[in-house]
Design a protein around this nucleic acid. Structure first.
Length: 271
DNA sequence: AGTGCGGCCTGTCCGC
DNA sequence: TGCGGACAGGCCGCAC
């Protein structure tokens, strides 16, 4: 589910509710989500305070007194804060009870999400080394993508969804940014010009920034820390619009599979 | 080495 | 109404 804007929206919401709170009780209602949840973590986490909540790539990173937690939401994961005894649902796999009586719940029907625990900063950093630059950072430029893509035959869409190339771009925003830049998703990455890479990077930044401002995209089940949906789905130009007319030229939007994933594009606007 | 694909899971929707 | 199959926002591990 969640790509960068949904994770960012969640981090902003969690910061409001959790910053400075202490975790009084931890409950694992299921011991394996994507990866096993060692029960020894429970006593390590209990009684620690949450100092900061940040995002790196699609991870939500919480700094505790002497440890870090990294949450990945997978396809259907969400983290929300609600009052004790209220709003409990099936697939709430992890619960943290906080010192003000609220509860942080990790909900994830498909269980592709995970939680990692790191004792110190170095262990955390070591786990993040394979990630590429943040798309909204200065290092993420058209020159960078152009350079890295030389001689790659891979489809441009798969290339920008590769988290070692640039983080945070998933299926929805890859489709949207490629449409906005006028590039066909199946174009080989190595054959795209520098000019087009500059255009693409500009559009990736624009699409992600707008989506964050709108609270992310809710297709079925994304919700932020307040259990509220996002609104970017109203701004989608191609994603989920197969056979519908392109908003720019009225040509029917196509959906071809690339790497097994639906890829929506306008055959007229994107070359 | 780079690339593509199946698999991990549950829920939902669509066609028969 | 029920049932099977396809599909869904991510990513890892394994083949070639």
């Amino acid at each position: 589910m969640p790509e960068l804007p949904e994770v960012e929206t969640t981090v902003q919401g969690l910061t409001r509710y959790l910053k400075g709170k202490s975790i009084q009780k931890v409950a694992f209602h299921r011991l394996t989500i994507r990866y096993p949840l060692p029960v020894e973590w429970i006593e390590k986490i209990e009684q620690q305070s949450i100092h900061t909540i940040k995002r790196r790539a699609k991870l939500i990173i919480m700094q505790l007194d002497n440890a870090y937690l990294a949450w990945h939401l997978g396809m259907t994961g969400s983290l929300r804060v609600s009052k004790e005894g209220e709003d409990k649902r099936k697939h709430d796999h992890i619960e943290f009870t906080l010192n003000n009586g609220t509860i942080l719940r990790f909900h994830d029907p498909r269980r592709f999400g995970y939680l990692s625990y790191f004792q110190g900063k170095e262990a955390l950093y070591k786990s993040l080394t394979h990630y590429g630059p943040e798309p909204l950072s200065k290092e993420f430029t058209g020159d960078y993508l152009w350079q890295l893509s030389r001689h790659k035959k891979q489809a441009i869409k798969n290339f920008i969804m590769d988290q070692s190339v640039v983080v945070g771009v998933g299926n929805i925003y890859a489709c949207e940014a490629l449409f906005a830049a006028g590039i066909r998703p199946q174009q080989p990455a190595g054959k795209i010009s520098l000019i087009n890479y500059k255009r693409l990077v500009e559009q990736i930044k624009k699409v992600l920034t707008l989506a964050i401002a709108q609270g992310g995209t809710t297709l079925k089940d994304f919700e932020n820390a307040d259990a509220k949906p996002g609104y970017f789905q109203q701004s989608l130009q191609v994603y989920g619009r197969e056979k519908k007319p392109c908003y720019t030229c009225h040509t029917a939007i196509r959906n071809n599979k690339i790497g097994g994933r639906s890829s929506f594009y306008c055959p007229t606007c994107q070359q």
